[in-house]
Amino acid sequence: MSSSDIFLGETIGTAVLILLGGGVCAAVTLKRSKAVGAGWVAITFGWGFAVLTAAYISLGLSGAHLNPAVTVGIAVQSGEWGDVPLYVAGQMLGAMAGAALVWVCYYGHFQAHLTDRETAGGPGAEPVPAGGRRSGAPGPVLGVFSTAPEIRHPVQNLATETVATTVLVLAILTQGLTEGLALSGTGVLVTALVVVGLGLSLGGPTGYAINPARDLGPRIVHALLPLPNKGGSDWGYAWVPVAGPLLGGVLAGCLYRLAFT
């Protein structure tokens, strides 16, 4: 595949991934959405369908990595690192574009949610009048864009993201052991179901980023968007959903080489 195919495939695919994945988070979170309060199961299946759709779209162009941890895991497994920067560049651009599209699609809902005195301050916070919110504190809609831990324990949070991503990437790498599966619709479906399973089983502690671009790109967009009372983007935690998945990708690649080759 050509460099342009890789870049376009990863950009388009990751944009669709974040549009649909961030979209379900917005639908469940924002006031006056028809899906508000639908809960964690809706989010996990929404992200699974987002992976399914995005991977189908981009598979023929770029192989549908859509995740720097997957790209790194494949590079460790294969020893081929030349296209890694190109894949990651497309993934980051796509993730930011997808997050911006979520904002466009839910523009009125963001405005309504963030200017409501009961929700603008976030859970347990003082109501915030229009025009003022404590800077730096995680905002009431940050979860639409990126992840956050339920219990802030960096070692545990890092371990959770690492373990979950190792399972994801190993499941993707081992598809190559079944003839034709890795480049088929069945392989895409298997990956989407793995993502649903990870969300249900291991998503509770951290929100299962399992993808550095999925978390970092939208977090940057959250920081840049002109949202009223949006609060901070929680940059103190932002390294965990980047470092954990990358470490998981490396571990999965090493495990594959150790156990399956």
Rank of each mutant, 00 (worst) to 15 (best):
A38M: 12
S58V: 05
K34W: 13
F45H: 06
G22C: 06
N67W: 11
G39A: 09
M96A: 15
I43K: 04
D83R: 14
D83A: 15
W47A: 05
A99E: 00
T29G: 08
I57H: 02
K31E: 10
K34Y: 13
G13W: 00
G63Q: 05
V16H: 02
G94A: 04
T53P: 02
W47N: 10
G98A: 10
V51L: 09
T11L: 15
G9S: 13
L17S: 02
G37A: 03
M92G: 02
S78M: 13
Q77A: 15
L93K: 06
V51K: 04
W40C: 05
Q91P: 02
A35F: 15
V70H: 01
Q77D: 12
V70G: 00
L86E: 03
L66A: 05
L19S: 13
L30R: 01
L93W: 03
M92D: 01
P68W: 01
A42C: 12
A38E: 04
I6G: 00
G82D: 14
T11V: 13
L17M: 14
P68L: 12
E10M: 08
V41N: 07
G48Y: 08
Y87W: 02
Y87D: 02
G63F: 08
V76K: 04
L19W: 02
A75K: 07
A42P: 05
G60A: 10
G82H: 14
G94L: 02
I18F: 03
T29F: 09
G82C: 11
V51F: 08
